[in-house]
Amino acid sequence: MSLGFSRAQATAMVVMVAFIIVGPAVLYPVFLMKVLCLALFACAFNLLPGYVGLLSFGHAAYFGMGSYIAAWTAKYWGLDAEAAIILGGLCGGALGLVFGWLAIRRQGIYFAMITLALAEMVYFFCLEAPFTGGEDGIQQVPRSPLFGIISTQQDMSLYWIIAAIFLGGFLLIHRIIHSPFGQVLQAIRENEPRAISLGYRVDDYKLLAFVLSAALAGVAGAAKSQVFGIATLTDVHSQMSGEVVLMTLIGGIGTVFGPVVGALLFGSLETYLAPFGDWVTVTQGAIFVACVLAFRRGLIGEIGARLKLGL
């Protein structure tokens, strides 16, 4: 296959697409759209720990800013859905360029701490800045039509658009991993001094990966603000940064499908345990601890290892 999927991955891909198509007949479209946005977010995040070896603890900054920018421009400039979402992605990418540039010279835990600190700054900026609406966030964002003509008012019409965005992002990430650029990333991850000795300016490659990851996180946040018609502090909060780490970890860091499964599991728990109030967090926590203990490589990582397949 020209996309570079192995046979096992192609099978998993078919299952995933089938689920996306059949899903809304069984489950609430809004719930599924939320899962798709989270899944894109997790896949974008996964690019860094999974394929570059960088653990970012501040990815909510790019997700959240994408969400705010898309919400604001859709509401006050009346931008079409696609323009608002693209702008959200560009904004995430631009922020990623600056933050990545600052963080990438540090290694390991220092890198993680800088990304966390920078994301906290973004959070406080969003809390204080006039355009974000403080505690209230940006509410009643209109669902603007796609290209100015295709209505997104109906959940089901928006669903196909969100599904297309997710699949587009998913395939792009897969392509990045299996591109000439991805090959260099893998070389850097396996033996950085050797890559340097071959003349690679490794920081430039890490930075481009960071920007791509942040931009796609921005797209995911922007899409989410279109689904729910709001952008709030939740999206930029450090809890969101932690959740994306968890989703990816549970699904399997460095696997193609792991983050998607992690996001589905995470979104389901959040939604279907909601009636139980405060117990949600406790139950979630318990399930996650159990998952991480039982499947150290994550669900998909573990399945892949058992079947000796790369998923």
Binding site: S2, R175, P180, F181, Q183, A195, G199
Partner: peptide, 21 residues
């Protein structure tokens, strides 16, 4: 190939398929 690729360019092409290598 990783070395050849460095000398001959295209190493930032993230949108291309690996098969170009």
């Amino acid at each position: 190939r990783v070395a050849l690729q460095r000398g001959r360019g295209g190493s930032f092409d993230f949108w291309r398929a690996e098969s170009v290598l």
